[in-house]
């Protein structure tokens, strides 16, 4: 086991940021923490990277205890905070060299590890980090976090605020890193990224709702789920919420996801109801559940 977390709780004054969090991450696994803003993901990262001390519970990283052995952990992990935390007034190359020196290594020594990522930012190596685009910044931050070949990599929302293409590239890089003996704990608010992890933990309000592989989590969703659309989406949602048999209603991309609480749900009956609400162009079709649907169901 690379990361062992047992019964971690943490509160700030009145707010309970984390309550009895437990999970394990195997070596070379990509483990995703999926949850909305304010779920406690950053607090958990800070506890595991020895920056905060939990009120209760214990945790160990690569065999080192987060409290007693914090110095060993700091030598062996790479951490990329949610906020871009490199020196904006230093160039790409200066940032990399600085982080290489403080970890007692050089750019050349672990070049093969960061090569794939570095060649993408190399054309800008003399540009100040503050002047890079969002995607480039994240790639540079990942390079800096990897430069000392850490055993465990902590990525706190690495793709927040990054364009879809860069996000996709970023995840491809993580997949490639997996083959190089690095355990990755990554958090994200994007449900579509969750499917790319080996295992995920759904977290909300400081509590873990579910831990499983993405496939298993989707399979747990037992209800029939429907895509709905109509000429007026806002009215559609309001009408569906008024419909007495509704189980859940929430917008999902260009559709509204709807589930019914009866096992013998008849879409035609719903269509008649919606037409009585003056809605037109009504489409009702069966769809498959996603991780987001599971999350919505679990967090109800």
């Amino acid at each position: 086991m690379s990361i062992i977390v047992s019964n971690i709780s943490k509160s700030y004054k009145k707010v309970k940021a984390l309550q009895n969090i437990s999970f394990n991450v195997k070596s070379d696994e990509i483990f995703g923490l999926i949850g909305p803003d304010g779920a406690g993901k950053t607090t958990l990262f800070r506890i595991l990277t020895t920056l905060l001390i939990a009120n209760k519970g214990a945790a160990s990283i690569a065999g080192f205890d987060v409290i007693t052995d914090y110095k060993s952990i700091r030598k062996n992990v790479g951490y990329m905070p949610g906020k871009f935390s490199l020196y904006q007034d230093l160039t790409v190359q200066e940032n990399l060299q600085f982080f290489a020196t403080i970890f007692g290594t050089t750019l050349e020594e672990n070049y093969d590890l960061i090569k794939d990522i570095y060649i993408q930012i190399e054309p800008f190596k003399n540009r100040r980090a503050g002047k890079l685009s969002g995607g480039m910044k994240q790639k540079l931050a990942l390079c800096c976090a990897l430069i000392h070949k850490p055993k465990v990599l902590f990525l706190d929302e690495p793709t927040t605020g990054v364009d879809p293409v860069s996000r996709k590239e970023f995840w491809e890089m993580l997949k490639r890193l997996q083959g190089k003996n690095i355990t990755i704990l990554v958090s994200t608010p994007y449900m579509d990224e969750a499917a790319l992890c080996d295992r995920i933990a759904l977290i909300q309000d400081g509590q873990i709702l579910e831990i499983a592989t993405p496939e298993a989590i989707v399979k747990k969703y037992s209800k029939a789920i429907y895509n709905l659309s109509a000429n007026n989406m806002f009215e559609l949602i309001n009408s569906l919420k008024e419909y007495k048999h509704n189980h859940s209603v929430y917008p999902f991309g260009e559709f509204v996801h709807y589930t019914d609480c009866r096992p013998d749900f008849n879409p035609t009956e719903l269509k008649v109801f919606l037409e009585s609400k003056n809605l037109t162009n009504i489409i009702i079709e069966r769809t498959t559940a996603t991780i987001e649907d599971t999350f919505m169901e679990l967090s109800k």
């Binding site: 920056l51 110095k71 700091r74 951490y79 935390s85 490199l86 020196y87 403080i102 007692g104």
Partner: peptide
């Protein structure tokens, strides 16, 4: 303020 202290703390310095 810029958050770089967080990274410096999580380093062998």
């Amino acid at each position: 303020e810029l958050g770089t202290m967080e990274i410096l703390l999580v380093s062998p310095l």
